[in-house]
Design a binder for these strands. Structure first.
Lengths: 224, 224
DNA sequence: GTAAAGTTAGACGCCATTGTCTAAACCGTC
DNA sequence: GACGGTTTAGACAATGGCGTCTAACTTTAC
């Protein structure tokens, strides 16, 4: 067991995790068979039982794995939120694109939402941690970031939590149905959805007193 | 088979449909057992096989039943959309409450979204018809209703389809997570979510030229 | 090369479920 | 009360998946 023996095991483990995520996501927990997971992973069934004692253990490991990946991605996407009022529309649009593309409409996001609906009742604590560190984190973090923008008077927001949830909801508005039905949006669709969302968000929360880099003035431009 | 013998069968059929919807919704198709459905329906297993030849037949009947009910409810809710610009905020808020309460956050709505995610790939045509007559109908109908309001200059909307999707998205923004995790919002939560949504929607799309029945003026009241 | 660990294919018992079948019980109509 | 249709409980074979076991094979370390 000494030294680098772990490497082969590690590759197998990840191969199994990926295959199991695929099959669990397509079939659900009950309809997913160990044999099919083994076939997809190009691994013997016994190997699966060697690494994960039973089906439930494997399932929990899969969910935790995807959750960690999704949380890391969310964190990195949140770090790209625009921090200045310059080009606010473009900055927010690019952020909304990344949020949809990498966190909400991507494979992991769909996987977790699907699983939380089908198996959430059987594993409350498992998905509760995702709720707190996934969507919950998104709302609180976005709320703080919006507060920063509002403090620099780029936005006029009364309730930051509400505004954060509304930003996410608007960003999803045009893609929700597509992702619910299993589709994946193209880059053009992502761009268009984000632009629609940010335009409406800024119409509602944009501070007309703040000078803007570009774009048509909302009601009256008094700066001239 | 003459006369009213059907009544008893009809009651059994509905009892089975309800029970099957309950079990399918909780367990999913694969993990739902006919025995459990029979127990919930207070009916013998053989009776289920008498009415619905096999498990798949029963499942399809359940989905169609729930779909029809949901579509009828959606239609009746859509007919309560406010048609005048008076009390627009209150009218839209009440409409948003009804939309969430009776169509989106209710039992049937959660059931259909859950099922479309888990079994959508196995029954594409079944859920495609729901997509068209459910969410699709909602968007197109709401788009037309918003266009009517815009035509009477109560709203200033450039793209009605986008505005319709955004209205629904905003109405859901505060409740999305709760319903995803199985919770059911209280009346207060419904009211609050709808009010937040409509306030933002009107900040974005409200026509400042139109006189308003009540509420604080947005920027400046020139009517004095 | 050898030994130890890990992997593989296959067989096996076990259990849950599906769908069928049968005999008995139930219910409404005549 | 007799009869046709419906429901019921239980038995039944067939299927398929889970988890275990074994014997052979491959890989890695020394």
């Amino acid at each position: 067991m000494a030294g680098h023996t772990q490497r082969g095991q590690c590759a197998k483990r990840m191969s199994i995790l990926d295959a199991a995520a695929d099959v669990f996501c397509r079939k659900g927990f009950a309809a997913a068979s160990i044999d099919e997971i083994a076939a997809v992973a190009c691994v013997s069934r016994q190997t699966i039982y060697n690494h994960y004692r039973e089906k439930e253990t494997l399932f929990v490991a899969v969910v935790e794995n995807v959750m960690n990946r999704a949380n890391a991605t969310l964190f990195s996407v949140l770090s790209t939120f625009p921090d200045s009022a310059d080009d606010l529309e473009d900055g927010l649009t690019a952020f909304a694109v990344r949020l949809n593309k990498n966190c909400i409409c991507n494979h992991d996001g769909k996987f977790l939402r699907k699983l939380v609906q089908t198996e959430g009742e059987r594993y409350p604590h498992l998905f509760e941690s995702w709720r707190q560190q996934g969507p919950g984190k998104l709302t609180t973090a976005l709320s703080a970031l919006l507060a920063r923008l509002a403090h620099s008077q780029a936005l006029a927001i009364d309730d930051f939590d509400v505004a954060a949830r509304q930003f996410v909801a608007l960003a999803n508005a045009d893609l929700q149905m597509m992702t619910l039905f299993g589709g994946t949006p193209t880059n053009e669709e992502l761009e268009k959805a984000a632009r629609n969302a940010v335009r409406t968000f800024l119409k509602a929360y944009g501070n007309p007193k703040a000078e803007k880099g570009a774009g048509e003035p909302q009601l009256a431009a008094m700066s001239g």
